[in-house]
């Protein structure tokens, strides 16, 4: 009996001590982690919409786990929208962000936030050659994948050897464009 009380006491003591130390430690790191997240978001917005953090502001229109919409404002004028989308890739989730012109006519730029595709094949969705072609594509939600080089704004060229990853990116963009369009039509101006 005595022994079991001692066991409980010792374990409880260490668990409480551990919780206390971690709670105290978290007060230092939590703020930094939040700051890092914000810095990263602003950097991404800059890349995909050309937002100038000194003069432009952004507001959150929608924020869900797998979907976010931001409105970039230059004064009161809408400069662009930025959309974060997520979907299944070849191995794990692909998370990306892209900028769209205010009238939803074209895509400004695309950036991959997270991917775990195969190095050398699917991971080439992060390469400049692939990403640069997204500039100026139609933001209609009806983009198609083609195998050959294309200038058509309704078509995107797939990466050879990485059809699944290319299709995944395309699907995420199409789906997110339609979803964002609907939200902005209903809620935002």
């Amino acid at each position: 009996m005595k022994e079991s009380i001692r066991m409980i006491a010792v374990l409880t003591f260490f668990a409480l001590l551990s919780g206390g130390i971690l709670g105290w430690f978290n007060t230092f790191t939590e703020k930094r982690v939040e700051e890092n997240r914000l810095k990263e978001l602003i950097h991404s917005l800059q890349t995909v919409t050309g937002m100038d953090p000194r003069t432009d502001t952004y507001e959150i229109i929608k924020k869900e786990k797998d979907f976010e919409v931001y409105r970039i404002l230059s004064g009161t004028e809408i400069k662009a929208y930025a959309i974060v989308g997520e979907g299944n890739g070849y191995q794990d989730k692909i998370r990306l962000i892209f900028g769209v012109s205010p009238d939803f006519s074209k895509i400004l730029a695309l950036k991959i936030l997270e991917e775990k595709e195969t190095p050398g094949l699917g991971a080439r969705i992060e390469s400049k050659e692939y990403l640069s072609q997204w500039k100026g594509k139609a933001a209609t939600g009806s983009l198609k994948l083609v195998k050959t080089s294309t200038q058509n704004p309704y078509e995107v060229q797939a990466i050879s050897g990485a059809t699944i990853s290319s299709t995944a990116v395309l699907k995420i963009v199409n789906k997110s464009v339609l979803r964002a369009k609907k939200i902005i039509k209903e809620g935002g101006k």
């Binding site: 374990l11 260490f14 130390i21 971690l22 430690f25 790191t29 982690v33």
Partner: peptide
């Protein structure tokens, strides 16, 4: 169990520190 609690405390500290 006690060792694991001690180890987990240090691991969580290391993890939070790297994230920050």
């Amino acid at each position: 169990a006690t060792f694991i609690v001690v180890i987990a405390t240090f691991v969580t500290m290391a993890d939070r520190y790297l994230a920050a």
